[in-house]
Computed example of a mutant assay.
Amino acid sequence: MYEHMTFEVILKRMLDRVPNDVDKREGSIIYDALAPAAAELAQMYAELDIILNLSFADTATGEWLARRTTEFGIERRPATKARRKGLFYGSGDVPLDVPVGSRFSIGGLNYRVIERLTAGQFSLECETAGAVGNQQFGAMLPIDYVAGLSRAELADVLVPGEDEESDEALRKRYFEAVREQPFGGNVADYKQKIGGIPGVGGVKPFPAWQGGGTVKCTIIAADYNPPASALIDEVQTAIDPVQNSGQGLGLAPIGHQVTIAGVQGVTVNVTTTVTLQSGVTLGQVQGEIESVIRDYLLSLRQMWADEDNLIVRVSQIEARILTVDGVTDVAGTTLNGVAANLELQSEQIPMLGTVTINVG
């Protein structure tokens, strides 16, 4: 609205109001008197345009977007801490129980023991919030002395940590809530309630999946991988703790019998033949080719909650391989041994298996 109010436009309008018998050329007294005011007005209009954009949810960013969505009860989701499985061993690799509250370090991150799962296996919480807590695996060093401990390993992601909600994610959630109007156990209500549980990256509700009153909700973890059983159990407890009771003891409405399930990962083995530029070897491009394929499958998993079913397309994989420096052509791509697109079911997501690259 105000972006066209430039210095030149404003100054011209001001000079147009001055009688023509007055010298208005650049350097004249009236020109030099009006130019500074025109510059200040141009700056003011530019700032007004910014403020106008920050006033509406479709263009607002940062704090201003959060203030707009909060008016509708939708607050930006903060970063959450990852929960991981820790494996602890004494001498002779005998499982060892460690004290709850003991702390361990790996890769610059600290993890605290919060719950015993079984002999020698504990749930640990990362002390640093965010997705960074999902990334480390392997040997940990104890921060506190633990008697009899000979080895500690950081293993499975039980509940993924999440970074603070991005502007685009918050904006999308805001418009969904405003337009779809969650109420009384409708599909939008289940999406909002389950999607707001830490560790959940998306949900697909299936109403009346085993008759009236039954609901199945399939979830994907916040890192867009199949969820661990611990996360599924947490969501089940929050939504319908006494499963299939219909008593309304959780977030599910009275009369709804809710079953929480996790997405199923389908391994995708890729075989392809590439033509390389002169002087380029397969070893130079192998890692990057695997990376672009992995990124493509991740982008599909991120879309899972909004799609009826996912399709892994050969053309998309080949197009991404062609973006790798050193690759001039690609052909003969197969997915799980078949030279065709791989169509998945509604509760399946693609997970990269082996990548076999031949040089043509």
Rank of each mutant, 00 (worst) to 15 (best):
D144E: 13
R173G: 06
R151C: 02
I143H: 04
L141W: 01
V178F: 12
L149Q: 10
N134R: 04
R171K: 14
Y145R: 06
V178N: 04
E165P: 10
M140G: 05
N134E: 08
G148R: 10
R151H: 08
A139F: 07
K172E: 15
S150W: 01
L141G: 07
S166A: 14
A139V: 14
E162V: 01
L154I: 14
A169Y: 01
D144N: 15
E153W: 02
K172H: 12
E176F: 06
P160G: 09
E165D: 08
G148N: 14
R151N: 13
L170E: 02
Y145I: 04
R179K: 15
Q136L: 13
A155T: 03
E168K: 01
R173A: 07
Q135F: 05
N134G: 04
E162M: 14
R173I: 08
E168M: 02
D167F: 07
E164L: 04
L158P: 05
A139W: 01
D163M: 02
P142R: 03
P160K: 06
F137S: 13
V178P: 00
F175S: 04
G161F: 02
L158K: 06
F137H: 11
Q135E: 13
V159K: 02
A177Y: 15
A139T: 14
N134I: 08
R171P: 05
L158R: 10
L149T: 08
M140N: 06
R179W: 10
F175C: 06
A177Q: 12
L170P: 03
R171F: 08
A177V: 06
G138H: 07
E162F: 00
P160Y: 04
R173K: 13
F175E: 12
E176V: 02
Q136E: 10
D156S: 09
M140V: 11
S166E: 11
S150Y: 05
S166P: 02
R179E: 05
V157M: 03
A169K: 11
D167N: 15
Q135R: 15
L158Q: 14
P160D: 10
P142C: 12
V159D: 00
A152I: 09
E153H: 01
L141I: 13
E176A: 15
N134T: 12
P160E: 08
V146H: 04
A139L: 13
E176W: 01
E153C: 00
D167Y: 09
E162Y: 00
A147F: 03
D163I: 01
Q135P: 00
G161C: 07
A139N: 11
E165R: 10
E165L: 10
A139I: 13
E165I: 08
V146G: 11
L158S: 02
V159R: 04
Y174S: 05
R151Y: 06
A152W: 07
R179A: 03
S166I: 05
G161K: 03
E153P: 00
